[in-house]
Design a protein around this nucleic acid. Structure first.
Length: 374
DNA sequence: AGCTATGATTTATC
DNA sequence: GATAAATCATAGCT
């Protein structure tokens, strides 16, 4: 009750009434057809009082703008965004050239080009595949956001320009609004970047967990390695080049080759008996095809020869214990017929004295005449 | 499930 | 930094 019907025009109407009135009008407006609105706009535009009104608005605006300006001038450097950018760059998720804005790129100089972190252990094809999947999603999402941002900006700009015919809107203001829009969109982008980073981190940690997962080498790889090992039994320390060659042939990494030789030496030494059969196989093989993976200067040396067994610098083929005897003998006295320095050589590596590292086996004492072997 | 073989990692040594 | 030796962790076989 209460609400008396609106009285005459002039006297100030009660506030409550005013609001509901305005609401009513708004509702009415929403009901209006577009054409109608357009027509009204046009009418307003052509109103004779318009220019005068406009200039008043401009004046008012002039004053308010000053007060607004003070507030809006800060420019957050946004360290976090920078961090994310750098990380994505380092992980190879974003390519340097692609960065449009933000100087993030500049200091990412150290990032590995492929994005793949250092070691060969990590360059897993699986990892790469998943990473590129992430990259793809990231870029397509980013592109989508950018597109949306462009569209929205354009829309708002048009709108403001359109409105500027009715009310004073300075280019500066438009610029500010556009800036605000970009700000919002970059917040969204930041989220995207963040989740991308998380995805990469998860991927990496999974990969590291899987590091210990062992997969047996392929038959071919094992063969290549064994061939070398048994054909250099007197000095099974491949040089760096030889390791690389072996790695290439076996489809392994150099560190895998190193691991393999480390394991092989120690296990062979610990239990030669167990390797007899294997030794026979490979020495027999290598005796025939002296293919040699080895270093240039390196001769398959003694190894190839012993096939026959006996001379065997080592435990080679047959007799397991015979080997021991041989070895003992060798250490006690110079071998007859100069045949076997080799044994000595072996003794040395088996005796746990690491050879002077890379020194190519070429120098192996055994080789001297070994070849003579028989 | 238990066992062995084997690739990878860690630690100590030179 | 390369290696020996010990150890870990899993593949693959029974």
């Amino acid at each position: 009750m209460a609400a008396p019907p609106r009285p005459a025009p002039s006297p100030p109407a009660p506030r409550r009434l005013d609001t509901s009135d305005v609401l009513q009008q708004i509702m009415a407006i929403t009901d209006q057809s577009l054409d109608e609105a357009q027509a009204r706009k046009h009418a307003l535009n052509c109103h004779r009082m318009k220019p005068a009104l406009f200039s008043v608005l401009c004046e008012i605006k002039e004053k308010t703008v000053v007060s607004i300006r003070g507030i809006q001038d800060e420019d957050p450097p946004d360290a976090q965004l920078l961090r994310l950018d750098n990380m994505l760059l380092a992980e190879g998720v974003c390519r340097p050239e692609k960065r449009g804005r933000g100087g993030a790129v500049a200091r990412a100089g150290t990032a590995t080009p492929g994005g793949c972190p250092n070691d060969n252990s990590i360059e897993h094809s699986d990892y790469r595949a998943k990473l590129s999947q992430i990259r793809q999603i990231y870029h397509s999402e980013l592109e989508k956001y950018e597109q949306a941002c462009r569209e929205f900006t354009m829309h708002v700009t048009n709108l403001l320009q359109e409105q500027s015919r009715m009310r004073p809107i300075s280019p500066k203001e438009i610029e500010r609004v556009v800036g605000a829009i970009h700000g919002k969109f970059s917040a969204i982008q930041m989220q995207l970047k963040q989740s991308t980073c998380e995805a990469v981190m998860t991927l990496r940690s999974r990969l590291l967990d899987a590091r210990r997962k062992r997969r047996n080498f392929s038959k071919q790889a094992t063969e290549v390695l064994n061939e070398y090992f048994y054909s250099h039994l007197n000095n099974p320390y491949p040089s760096e080049e030889a390791k690389e060659e072996l790695a290439r042939k076996g489809g392994l990494t150099v560190s895998q080759v190193s691991n393999w030789f480390g394991n092989k030496r120690i296990r062979y030494k610990k239990n030669m008996g167990r390797f007899q059969e294997e030794a026979t196989i490979y020495t027999g093989k290598t005796a025939v095809d002296t293919t040699e993976v080895g270093v240039p200067g390196n001769h398959a040396s003694c190894l190839s020869t012993p096939s026959s067994g006996s001379s065997g610098p080592f435990p080679l083929p047959s007799a397991g214990d015979a080997f021991l005897t041989l070895r003992t003998l060798a250490s006690l006295q110079p071998p007859p017929g100069g045949g076997c320095l080799q044994s000595q050589a072996q003794g040395s590596w088996q005796g746990a004295t690491p050879p002077p590292a890379t020194a190519s086996p070429a120098g192996d004492p055994g080789s001297i005449n070994s070849s003579t072997s028989n």
